[in-house]
Computed example of a mutant assay.
Amino acid sequence: AALLVPLHLLCLSITSVGQSTFEKAQGEKVTLPCTFVLSEEDEGPLDIEWVLIPADNQKKEQIIIMYAVDRIYNHYYAAMTGRMQFTNPDPRSGDGSLDILNLKSADTGTYQCKVKKAPGVQSQKIQLTVLVKPARTKCSIEGSQEIGKDVILKCASQEGSPLLSYDWRRVSGTQELPATSMLNKNTGELLLKNASQDYSGTYNCVASNRVGTDECSVQLNVTPPINTAGIIAGAIIGTLLGLCVLGFLIFCCCKKHREKKYEKEVHHDIREDVPPPKSRSSTARSYIGSNRSSLGSMSPSNMEGYTKTPYSQVPSEDFERTPAQNPTFAPSKVAAPNLSRMGAVPVMIPAQSKDGSIV
């Protein structure tokens, strides 16, 4: 009787079937296994192909790397250029595993290894999840840090794949969380109800997921209530003082500006109402007129002492001329009593020197 052998044992088979899912952290390296065994019936050329199956079934599969006709082709997927390679440089040995270096979160997806050697054809799917470690975790305090108030300590990571878990611990004092505290591990909030000064200290938050952890710290200082009335009164007084100082400065500036403006106007003002100075001729007339008035009040008997001085003619307004220009007056032959009877007004003539100038 002939020995019947199952057909699947006579053709190509993939042996790496132990693990079909992988979780790795961003930046790490992963090896997606794909080992196989050929049979004597497989006589065609060996063809190994890795493809990325999209989550959307409407999209086409993306070829990543291929081995065909004793040659490797790795230029199909630009997103992994320089980051992927066959684990074994010669896949003909039965190892078509794929290495992906420096993993990124975008590398998450379903990968399929296809091995062909006619008439044998086999394939295997592997699920890869690239997780991001928590990073840039920040701690903060929400609420008034006063005795008797409720305080919330917050913790959040800017980066990190879900599901993230947060845990708070006290790293100073008793190193135990207050009895009234309530922790939410999913949101990272730690509620401290009815805070007292004993709650003061340093608190530490640890954010974690399946691939890593990150942490931050915050300092809590619970203080007595603030004197709000005193602060308001101080603010009002300070504001009033500031307004007073500002008003004084404005007054000084305005006063100084007015003084400068007044000085400038006085300096450049031309007084048109002031008459010009009198000429010498006018001065001479005044002088002679005053002498005439004084002499007119004198009696004829008192005029005898002045008969020696000729005053038959009154000097002209040009009495300040040079001696060469002054005219020579002839002495009068009429006596003083006769002049008085004729109605003449006696006038005192200032004495002159020989050169004609007034003595």
Rank of each mutant, 00 (worst) to 15 (best):
A335K: 11
D198T: 03
T239S: 14
V51M: 08
R258M: 11
A195N: 03
Q313D: 10
T322Q: 02
Y287D: 03
T21D: 10
P225N: 07
Q112M: 09
Q158A: 13
K255F: 04
P300Q: 12
L3W: 05
G143T: 11
F248V: 11
G238D: 05
G234E: 13
C254L: 13
C252F: 10
S97Q: 06
Y306A: 07
C11K: 14
I237N: 05
I358Q: 10
D95K: 01
P275I: 09
P337I: 15
G356K: 00
E146C: 02
L191D: 08
S161L: 06
R136P: 00
Q112L: 04
E215I: 00
S13F: 14
Q19L: 03
F251M: 12
Q124N: 08
E304Q: 10
K114R: 09
A207H: 02
G18S: 15
M348C: 03
G94P: 05
N302V: 03
L192Y: 02
E41H: 05
T239K: 02
A79S: 11
V30P: 03
S290E: 10
N186A: 09
L246G: 05
I126Q: 04
L177K: 10
N184S: 15
R321M: 10
C11D: 01
Q325A: 11
V245K: 01
T110P: 00
